[in-house]
Write a protein that binds this DNA or RNA. Structure first.
Lengths: 135, 135
DNA sequence: ACCCAACGTTGGCGCGACCAACAATACACA
DNA sequence: TGTGTATTGTTGGTCGCGCCAACGTTGGGT
């Protein structure tokens, strides 16, 4: 089977499992990606967040809208650059993220369940190099 | 980074490269999946092809339509079971598939380019076990 | 004769991933 | 100083994949 198709099949499985887990937390993948990135790197502009997550600027608008409506992030204009909005994760967002992380930990385990621990580490290493060292 | 996200990122890269390659052949991923499955396993019903490719029955209708319009497959009613259509790859389809295979070979190489050969084999092995041995 | 399962088909949905265009703002530099 | 260029947020739209529900037709079982 073609490596590309193999990878896609794996991603399909992963996404099914992950989407199901995130649905229990009431969010989709974009929401989690955004919350996790905010928690890891701190407040940033929408464009900056888009670059880090790979989410398009236009999709970022909707994602921030939805998270802001739930009170999980704040959107405020940047006083130093009036083009920008600064997105900040709220304490409620941080709490919610903790729950999502817990849900996702189980999902990862289910996703990787066919492989023993050593192979899981090896797979992660290979994938990291595959997606990381790319021009 | 979460294994699920890592896998998804790899799949995104793979799909971008593959889609671009298949576009040169004038088809999308579903078309190739169908042609390749027909070539490997021989004629089959639409439902049977759907089970093998993972393509939904409803999407299979459109895919067969498009390939039949191009003369790459034939759709004929099964005389032994009038519920079924038997889908057959044509000689033109076989020729086209050869070209697509060539395009895809380059795509695979580009996709896996960050990894040396031994690691590529290892990755393929791990992914095969990950998607294969699943309940 | 009856019911259930499988098939092809239609129509629809959601999500992720994109692109083009726009006004507002910042910035470089001639 | 002004003038062009780049960036940002936003709107609105497209495409493909992956699904699901429903329907009429047909087959197979009992």
């Amino acid at each position: 089977m073609l490596p590309s198709r193999l990878t896609n099949q794996a991603a399909l499985t992963a996404n099914r499992i992950v989407d199901q887990a995130l649905a229990k937390g009431g969010v989709r993948r974009y929401h989690y990606a955004l919350l996790a990135t905010l928690e890891e790197f701190g407040p940033a502009s929408q464009a900056g967040l888009g670059r880090r997550t790979g989410i398009d600027r236009s999709d970022m608008v909707a994602t921030v809208n939805e998270l802001a409506e739930k009170g999980l992030v704040n959107r405020e204009p940047d006083p130093e650059d009036r083009r920008r909005n600064i997105i900040t994760i709220t304490s409620g967002g941080r709490r919610h993220l903790t729950e999502l992380d817990r849900l996702l930990a189980d999902a990862q385990d289910e996703f990787l369940s066919p492989l023993p621990a050593a192979d899981r580490r090896h797979l992660i290493d290979l994938l990291t190099r595959l997606v990381g060292e790319r021009p």
